[in-house]
Design a protein around this nucleic acid. Structure first.
Lengths: 106, 106
DNA sequence: TTCGTTAATCGTCGATAAACGATATAACTG
DNA sequence: CAGTTATATCGTTTATCGACGATTAACGAA
């Protein structure tokens, strides 16, 4: 079942705090973002570049060359299969769309 | 941000095809399931046991001793944080219904 | 063209993960 | 108690990951 392989690849791309931080950063940054990522995550430039490469290889982000920089952007559709899988494991309680989220401030 | 660490741990637990297969198997199996998992995934018993240990450590499954066997069961709530994170990256298409704005903490 | 900036790639290292066989543990059976 | 079955753990080997510094490539500006 190659689908599992793909899902595992997606999960693997998320399986690192630095990459999650990068994704949050991209989410919080409306426009283009370049080397600021390096500052924000506090790792070496080459390390950040590697994380970006991994995210890009998984299709989770896309990089567009913009002059001397590269403009990264989220590509959230890529994660849809993983989201579906997780949802499929989740019990169907009363998951009507709008459930008043009680208990969230854990 | 320790939350990223936790999310990364969850994703890491999912980042292997054999573990995804195990989760699917648990999902498809209503009652208790024991060593049949070994047959289904086609790996050595010790390897499967290790995968089960990892899933259990992540809280994604739980194992209850049932006589000579161990009864494994999904524990889908454990994945909720990861599902939320992925959802937060997903563009809000027409989600008029559930505004999942989890109030920007931090 | 030369220089400075930005990002990607290379080479290397230690750490972690994955897989296996062998062995140990626990519980039921007789 | 001895034997069988079902899991877990141990120890080892191999592969992959994560991080870094150094180098290279691409681009804009002077």
């Amino acid at each position: 079942m190659p689908q599992n392989d793909h899902l595992a690849d997606l999960a693997k791309a998320l399986a690192h705090p630095a990459r999650l931080r990068i994704l949050r950063l991209l989410l919080a940054t409306p426009g283009c973002i370049g080397g600021d990522i390096v500052d924000a995550v506090g790792l070496a430039q080459s390390t950040v570049s590697e994380h970006l490469r991994i995210l890009k290889a998984a299709g989770i982000i896309s990089g567009e060359i913009d002059g001397p920089r590269v403009c990264y952007a989220l590509n959230p559709d890529a994660l849809a299969p993983l989201a579906e899988f997780i949802a499929s494991l989740t019990p169907p309680p009363g998951d009507a769309c709008c459930v008043p989220t009680r208990k969230e401030t854990t």
